[in-house]
């Protein structure tokens, strides 16, 4: 199983049905009687179990991309497919994590996680077991009954992550999930997300502003240009599947990838 996943994560080897497929999508909307193009001709194919980071200048449509995948937003042109199936409406087989934890402040950590189950009508016993499993996996043990305002930002984001993973979604969408955290907490969360991804084998699309984060976590990094957002380049991260944080940072492929991304983003902002 593990070997199989490993193979699938290798880009190019994904001959099977892609988990996420964007085919020349464009998003246009009208603002103040002017048509604005948010995304133009974005194509991407993500293999099942693959981790893809998306980086780009602010306002380049990174979040819009995730909204397209989830079906919360329809593209103006092009096609979006999840496991070969065209996305027609909001998809229920995904997990979503936003920059803000978006927790219900009257519910305890555990009950916030279980919201996912309640909304889906999952059997309570099964959902409870799964929640306990995730609570342990994310190190929330001891904080199950805490209300969101009693939790730190990192802890709140862990709750949001547990909520997103409760129903074992094949695709996890993360929209700058650690953007509001301090640097140290962010590093810890990166290490944990990497471990959780390895354990669950979920396909992950991560939007981030941090170049280091994007490279450390991903198999591939999609670098976007400034608005209208297009694909500048998709970079393969030539690092082993299991990664130690400090060690990974010191390896030549890491420096290579981050350097390339920095160049691309510099060029993107320069032509803006």
């Amino acid at each position: 199983m593990k070997g199989n996943l490993e193979a699938e994560r290798t880009p190019g080897a994904a001959t099977a049905v892609a988990a996420v497929e964007l085919d020349a999508v464009a998003v246009r909307f009208r603002a103040k009687k002017k048509e604005v193009t948010a995304l133009r001709d974005v194509s991407l194919s993500v293999a099942p179990g693959e981790f893809v980071s998306i980086v780009g200048p602010s306002g380049c449509g990174k979040s819009t991309l995730l909204k397209l995948v989830s079906g919360l937003l329809r593209p103006s042109a092009g096609g979006v497919r999840l496991f070969g199936e065209a996305v027609g409406g909001t998809r229920h087989d995904i997990g979503y994590v936003f920059q803000r934890a978006a927790l219900l402040e009257w519910r305890s950590a555990r009950r916030n996680i279980l919201l996912q189950a309640e909304m889906r009508g999952m059997p309570a016993a099964e959902a409870g077991r799964r929640a306990d499993e995730l609570i342990e996996m994310t190190g929330l043990t001891g904080f199950e009954d805490a209300l969101p305002h009693e939790l730190s930002g990192g802890m709140q984001q862990r709750v949001a992550l547990c909520r997103a993973l409760l129903h074992r979604p094949p695709v996890l969408l993360m929209d700058e999930p650690f953007g509001a955290l301090d640097a140290l907490t962010r590093e810890q969360m990166n290490v944990e997300l990497h471990r959780i991804w390895r354990e669950t084998g979920t396909t992950v699309l991560l939007v981030t502003h941090s170049i280091a984060e994007s490279v450390y976590l991903a198999n591939r990094v999609l670098v976007m240009t400034a608005r209208p957002g297009t694909v500048a380049e998709i970079i393969d991260v030539d690092l082993p599947g299991s990664r130690d944080y400090a060690e990974t940072m010191s390896q030549p492929p890491f420096a290579e990838a981050t350097g390339r991304i920095r160049d691309l983003l510099g060029a993107a902002t320069a032509t803006d």
């Binding site: 998809r91 978006a102 919201l115 909304m119």
Partner: peptide, 23 residues
């Protein structure tokens, strides 16, 4: 209500009634 919370409810496949009652 936090619009992201409503989007989240949509991805959870929640009915409008459940979204109203719980969020």
């Amino acid at each position: 209500v936090d619009p992201e919370m409503l989007q989240l409810a949509a991805t959870m496949g929640a009915s409008p009634l459940k979204t109203f009652a719980k969020i």
